[in-house]
Design a protein around this nucleic acid. Sequence first.
RNA 1: GUGAAUGUAGCUCAGUUGGUUAGAGCACUAGGUUGUGGUCCUAGGGGUCGCGGGUUCGAAUCCCGUCAUUCACCCCA
Length: 437
Amino acid sequence: MKIAGPKGTRDFYPEQMALRNWIVQRWTEISRRHGFVEYDGPIFERLDLYRIKSGDEIVSQLFHFEDRGGREFAIRPEMTPTLARMVAAKANALPKPIRWFSAPRLCRAEKPQRGRLREFFQWNIDIVGVESELADAECIFVAVDFFRSLELTPEHVVMRINSRAVVAALLHNIAIPDDKLTGVFAALDKRDKLSAEAFAEVLGEMDLSEKQREALIAMGEAKGPEGLDRIESMLAGDESGQATVTQLRQVFAHLAAFGVAEYCAYDMGVVRGLAYYTGTVFEGFGQGGLQRAVCGGGRYDELVSQLGGPSMGGVGFATSDVVVEDLLAEFELLPELKATADYFVIDADASVFPQVLELVGRLRHAGVDAAFSYQRQGVGKQFKQAASRGARRVAVIEPDFARTQTLNIKDMASGTQASIPLAALIDDPFMELPTTS
RNA sequence: GUGAAUGUAGCUCAGUUGGUUAGAGCACUAGGUUGUGGUCCUAGGGGUCGCGGGUUCGAAUCCCGUCAUUCACCCCA
């Protein structure tokens, strides 16, 4: 009886595994380049950890279970609560600022579709313990630098940036009551996906005054530098409100200094769904046929203290292997990852096969990736195998090898071939081959 | 959770108005070109036509159900 894999999960055959590893290596490399160190936590957590702060949306899609003592657990659906828990537990002992990254395997009981599966890998970058908007800007910079390293340009992906503090100040200014904030946040967040009429209709259902609705419509359209100017003028006379705009402008100034301004744009339509964001919020948005968020993040200033730690602000973002792959596929930027070997050793005659094994043994012992054919067959066939195996060089052992102690070495890319003494090969397996053919 | 589309070999698909042993390309395996490669040639393995039921002399093809996948909504990585 055949049993299919679980819905929304993937089997990583060597080809897919190579791509996944390539992506994770990229994440690791970029993280280190920007001065982040790696951490990890358990793959399941107490269910309460997510009940506290992630919001209903996340909780409704948890895979959860009980142990034999009736304790409730959930497979981690996101990493930030674990990070906050770990930081809260040792807050005073950890050197600040905390600059951590992780690439955890996560699970969410969602209905799978493009860019969204039930099991995936997510790259998380977080800076904790820095209140300055420098940290916000640096997180965004890391995200952009990652995309840039994949040869993605602003034509492929842009960072849309906003601040919940600014939004909150605006809403406060037009006297939106606290109990309606969440609803209004949600409405603004999907402004981009709706027509102007549909947006007005959503607002119409929310029991707001005419004036409030007009203000929200004006807000919802604010984008780019002019949009930010308009927002600032809407806050005229509100000193603390204007301060939030000044902070947001600082973020943009830092991003310009880091040299990634062309990737970044102000956008009132970005509010983000997670409940714990308090300040800067941002998302990378795929252009072309993708048209979806490919990374997302923001500032969470209360999460650590809510988990019993000291009052510590944090900011971070995440992206997943699934959307990164979709993004690269969309623009045909996926790498070609073929299996390779440094050397493929061939016998010109079955009688010297023992010497093949001997040479393979010596090369591998020297740290060289060496392969050979299991079957004794013609030289042509063995070369064919060497080629499909991705061998860079082929070493041919001739029938008179015992006497000459010399091999024919061929470079597969250039076709150059040379006669090299065994001792010289072992001494330096990657020597330049004489160019005479 | 709501709505829609699709389900033929490992992959991409053909399969005429329902008619005999269901095909192609790629991939895979073996062999040939008789001592130097990713070309070419030949052969081979592999399919309960998603599954179950119905209509019919006869169903991959029509009908119903079911499952799965994909897309959109919601939300999100």
